[in-house]
């Protein structure tokens, strides 16, 4: 039995580079090149001087690396009469981002928690409306919201101004007319509203996957609605909060439409300012500065994407799995 050399035995010999494998990896490499190309083009263009761009072509690496376009894009590029660069848009975006992310995630996580553990009559109906509402084009709701924000400003004005005598006594500046439309708070409101369907779904599904008995045990232990939320649910759900933060930071940073409509030029987010810089018709086109500006704007979501790995995937896939 031992020496039968014709009979196969032992591990199957592996063909390292079978034809199918070469095809498979070849295709994947080509595809990767296609997807990486624009990133590469952005980087090399932003590191060249304008003369070099005019001479060479798009893909050639810079012969002389210069960071001047980056400096210019950040602090000198012009939009209209302002020539203080993209840094203004960057800080505006940061100012928009932080409250929007915090408020939208806070509100949605509490909604998801109420929907999972404290259902009441009609709560599922509201949730269904919310989910299907996510499919309504923004354009349908955009104008009525403008009116709502204006009215809300008018509504709040007398309340705020009622504090004016006290403020004057203290020597502080009194309230004038309160504007919510065109202000940061209005944009935060809009991001909270439109972030709600996907975030509520995300949190609802996550909370529903936690063992129900934990919730029951906490109730027997005498914890109430907020007690259970803060002491039990939130500490157990840190991963999903990270996913939600990734989702919202990239989403809000990348927003253009709401930024254009609900803010005014002084507080335009980075994307809006970028578009205004690159697509302005005045002056000579400085492609290297444009690409530096574009890359700068894309940097925040890119860093988050590459740093977060699978968590990003989990966030964007949340809308795709059935709730």
């Amino acid at each position: 039995m031992v020496d039968l050399p014709m009979e196969p035995s032992g591990p199957k010999p592996r063909v390292r580079l079978s034809r199918a494998n070469i095809m498979l990896y070849g295709i994947l490499l080509l595809v990767s090149l296609y997807y990486l190309l624009p990133l590469y083009v952005m980087v090399v263009t932003s590191l060249k001087g304008m003369p070099e761009i005019r001479m060479g072509h798009l893909f050639s690496p810079p012969m002389e690396v210069t960071f001047e376009p980056w400096v210019k894009a950040w602090s000198e590029a012009c939009t209209g009469i302002n020539c203080d660069g993209l840094s203004r848009g960057f800080w505006n975006s940061v100012r928009i981002l932080i409250p929007s992310v915090l408020v939208s995630i806070g509100v949605a996580s509490v909604s998801g928690y109420a929907l999972t553990n404290w259902r009441f009559k009609g709560s599922e109906t509201f949730f269904t409306i919310l989910i299907f509402g996510a499919f309504i084009p923004y354009q349908v709701m955009i104008y009525p919201i403008v009116i709502l924000l204006r009215e809300a400003g008018d509504l709040v004005t007398p309340i705020a101004q009622s504090a004016n005598p006290a403020l004057e006594l203290l020597g502080l500046e009194p309230f004038g007319k309160v504007r919510i439309m065109g202000s940061l708070s209005g944009l935060v409101f809009v991001h909270t509203i439109f972030g709600m369907p996907i975030l509520t779904l995300l949190f609802r599904n996550y909370f529903a996957s936690l063992p129900d008995e934990l919730f029951k045990a906490a109730r027997v232990d005498g914890a109430g609605f907020w007690g259970i939320y803060f002491r039990i649910m939130v500490p157990m759900s840190l991963p999903i909060f990270v996913v939600a933060i990734i989702l919202q930071v990239t989403g809000i940073w990348n927003d253009f439409l709401f930024g254009v409509i609900y803010t005014k030029p002084e507080i335009y987010p980075m994307t809006v300012q970028l578009n205004n810089i690159v697509n302005s018709v005045q002056g000579v086109k400085e492609y290297n500065v444009n690409m530096a500006a574009t890359l700068l704007t894309g940097l925040v979501p890119l860093i988050i994407y590459f740093a977060s790995g699978k968590l990003f995937v989990r966030g964007i896939a949340a809308g795709a799995v059935k709730g």
Binding site: E213, A217, A218, R219, V220, D221, G222, R231, I232
Partner: peptide, 17 residues
């Protein structure tokens, strides 16, 4: 409320925090 009933409860999955 559950906590006001004078009961203690032990669950199948233990439900420890």
């Amino acid at each position: 409320e559950p906590s006001e009933r004078g009961i203690g409860m032990v669950f199948q999955s233990y439900a420890l925090y």
